[in-house]
């Protein structure tokens, strides 16, 4: 008696497990939304950025966050620490000194990368995230329940949360100035950047441009466009003069971040077939056991 149930327990365990084990090898999200070919992006040339932090000011202004006076941003003492974007500043610039040559530090602007296949979008329990046709990954405030799973999922650790708010706390992250874009305007940071370290354009053209820059000035650029392939590609792309890992960039693979989890999800939930089959199996076992007991009686 006990052997039967033990065996069937093992069976169900293996059945459930095998569904999961089958999928992660080709870890691709089950359905990749076809993105419009003219989706936008920004190429950040960190060799051009001078760290004036005007983008921080413009960003806060564009998102109705307390911004202060623009001349406050001349203060370079903030570069002493490596900062992160948060709920009060959706983009920030960090400075990485070059050892032995203080003349050309590398300044790295950080904001949401606007992934091609965003982990936050895949993770969000209520589907509050959306990959817009402009390339922007945007968030619907009316849906969000504040579970912060997007923050767990994001490979770049970007979404921030308004922990201090008791009512209607929001997930805060760069929205690629989607409202401005819809009005035919440029993202605020791109517009204000004095040196055009931020080039706004079609993502495909930006990739071509980035590679052309590397080809023309191999001494100026490290031969890599960060964001071209990382986690399946991002709308924001970076050029740098040095190895990216030295500049606070994360070493990430080229598989989309939601790949493994989505294939597991779809493995378990393939059109509800596995759960229903499992239900039927259990029903059958129950019926058999009942009849057998009755027979014994």
């Amino acid at each position: 008696m006990s052997t039967i149930s033990r065996r069937s327990f093992i069976k169900t365990g293996i059945a459930a497990g095998s569904v999961m084990l089958a999928s992660p090898k080709d870890a691709r999200p089950a359905e990749v939304k076809t993105l419009p070919p003219d989706r936008r992006g920004v190429l950040v040339d960190t060799t051009v950025c001078i760290g004036c932090r005007r983008c921080e000011w413009a960003c806060k202004n564009a998102h109705s966050l307390p911004a202060g006076d623009i001349t406050d941003y001349d203060d370079e003492s903030v570069f002493a620490n490596k900062r992160r974007p948060d709920d009060k500043a959706l983009t920030i610039v960090n400075r990485y000194e070059k050892i032995g040559d203080e003349r050309f530090p590398t300044n790295v602007k950080i904001q949401c990368m606007h992934c091609e296949q965003p982990a936050c979008l895949s993770a969000c329990i209520v589907g509050a995230f959306k990959k817009d046709d402009t390339g922007a990954v945007v968030w619907d405030t009316d849906k969000c329940i504040g579970c912060r799973y997007c923050m767990v999922a994001c490979p770049f650790q970007i979404p921030a949360f308004e922990y201090e708010k008791a009512l209607d706390p929001k997930i805060m992250k760069c929205d690629f100035c989607i409202d401005r874009q819809k009005n035919g305007e440029l993202p605020a940071c791109v517009e204000i950047c004095p040196a055009e370290a931020l080039t706004f354009g079609k993502r495909s053209e930006l990739i071509t441009l980035a590679h052309r820059k590397i080809e023309l000035f191999p001494e100026r650029y490290y031969n890599k466009v960060y964001g071209e392939a990382e986690v399946g590609g991002t709308s924001w792309l970076y050029l740098a003069s040095r190895e990216f890992m030295e500049l606070g960039f994360l070493k990430l693979g080229t598989n989309p971040a939601p790949g493994v989890s989505e294939s597991i999800q779809h493995g378990i939930f393939a059109y509800f077939v596995p759960p229903i089959a499992f239900y039927a199996l259990l029903g059958g076992v129950m019926w058999l056991n009942k009849n057998r007991n009755r027979g014994e009686e």
């Binding site: 969000c124 209520v126 589907g127 329940i145 799973y149 706390p169 939601p258 989505e262 999800q265 939930f269």
Partner: peptide
Amino acid sequence: GRWYYIWHPLIMWNGNSAL
């Protein structure tokens, strides 16, 4: 963060999300 929206997943579905 928004406990009063706990019912949202009932009508707002995201099949890709493990959560």
